[in-house]
Nucleic acid binder design. Sequence first.
DNA 1: TGCGACAGGATACATCGTAACCCCCACCCG
DNA 2: CGGGTGGGGGTTACGATGTATCCTGTCGCA
Lengths: 149, 149
Amino acid sequence: MTDCSACTRSADASAALVERGVRVTALRTRVLDALHHAEKPLGAYELFDRLKADGAASAPPAVYRVLDFLEGQGLVHKLQSIAAYTACRASAAPHRAVFRICRACGGVREGTSPRLDDLAAEAEAEGFRVEHLVVETLGLCAACTPGRP
Amino acid sequence: MTDCSACTRSADASAALVERGVRVTALRTRVLDALHHAEKPLGAYELFDRLKADGAASAPPAVYRVLDFLEGQGLVHKLQSIAAYTACRASAAPHRAVFRICRACGGVREGTSPRLDDLAAEAEAEGFRVEHLVVETLGLCAACTPGRP
DNA sequence: TGCGACAGGATACATCGTAACCCCCACCCG
DNA sequence: CGGGTGGGGGTTACGATGTATCCTGTCGCA
């Protein structure tokens, strides 16, 4: 288990949970750590396998419960188009985000944009009550685009 | 099998395929019709069940193949957050779209917005080659929002 | 007539997600 | 201290979603 800057982030996230008065359990910490250490988003079962190897998780439902919880807390995002989960590096609170998913290397970058709020506002203006916004950009990242230095 | 305005739309879509020089097969027509007649998006297996009842489809892979094809042609959209497919009512060509998905009634509205192109342009400006954009707004539609006439 | 390309049939399987039920344990309260 | 309570997680079993693989039929074309 290597030490890395991501650990700090993970600790920050845990601290946010404590402040909100919700429980920081061993399993939740493990899941968060695993996602922070992963270079890429992890599928639920991929995550499950890693946790099981560490003796930290027993069965899929446990993992899904934790993922749902962490997503509700804004610490984890689910990438719908690839059915994978990624730890949020930007903020420890629920927020809107846009993801760029490279189909070649599998890498994902989380970002933000005023367009997100614009889109939400457009929906609200038409009477739609926005609870969640999914914005995922699929394609090739700069490093994987052919004809490039 | 009732006659309805959606059939016209479905016919328009088929006409677009002919013009592109791709094949309009029985199965593809059936899938398109089924999606056009459905009031709500259909899951792949839900769609499969309907087609099988009509003797039109044999097994899941056939349905997925047709769905992939139609999506590539811009006639069908996949709603990632609910794993369902809907016929496009807007255009017979590939295009960007934003969806509003009501978690209460399950209804979906397809729309468009200049923000979609803005988001794509932002990504391109940073060297990301955009191939597909998924934008889904989840919440309550006007009719399902409480405290409303 | 033979060939290549494409659509679809058929089987089996992989992956993703959840329902239902139980138990444990921290915590609160009298 | 004894009992109640609720959240978190273990366990089993299953449902839903999506695919790999191989084979068959059909059509256009040289």
